[in-house]
Write a protein that binds this DNA or RNA. Sequence first.
DNA 1: TGCATTCATCGTAATATTGCAATGAAGTAA
DNA 2: TTACTTCATTGCAATATTACGATGAATGCA
Lengths: 110, 110
Amino acid sequence: MGISKTEIFTEQQNEIALFAKAFGHPARVAILQHLFKIDTCVCGDLVNEIGLAQPTISQHLKELKSLGLIKGSVDGTRVCYCIDPKNWTKMKRIMCGFLDQDISIKEECC
Amino acid sequence: MGISKTEIFTEQQNEIALFAKAFGHPARVAILQHLFKIDTCVCGDLVNEIGLAQPTISQHLKELKSLGLIKGSVDGTRVCYCIDPKNWTKMKRIMCGFLDQDISIKEECC
DNA sequence: TGCATTCATCGTAATATTGCAATGAAGTAA
DNA sequence: TTACTTCATTGCAATATTACGATGAATGCA
């Protein structure tokens, strides 16, 4: 039905899924990579950098912001965005905990 | 329009997004966690383990299989699924490369 | 053969996501 | 003030995802 039955899963499983969903679109991946590359606030030129319309970029930024992965600060008519290092680290710990499950795997079975 | 403009992004960005999308649903997270926990083939009881209908589970398994993260082998009337360690490692390298971008970050800016 | 079991596929409904034009809000500059 | 810039929000259309009942395919067993 297009709706996830979140109530039957653990809080951890839902949290992993939420973060993963944020990375589940190449535009958001590109935005985050650009913010890391610049390594400072990006003020205004994200629309030129990524090839999408301004409202679309704004929407993607909103999603990343609501998860806490980036933060924005107003500077005149511009808004400057950058990675939130604290929350990024927190997210990374959760995601890597999920990805590193294979360290305990014994052998191939089939 | 509900369609991602994949053509304007790099192959790497699209690949990250594809893997992330696979983890973007708690049911698929739960399936993978269960496969790791059991640490062998899981034959048949995934529907009881996760709380979703059989066609729904089958659909999620198909997605994970099409990405190569799991593999299934027929065993009588049952189908046994397990993690594909090789592809999981490959995926992990790609995802961690993305998540570890912050190691080069200098300082907070805003 | 006939029946049961297991899983995949089909079809469909409900909801979510993506993208953008149009518009609005808030600031700057003349 | 007016005009301009920048970004957010609204509204909408197109597509994607999620979920499941019904059905089909394949196997095992009596």
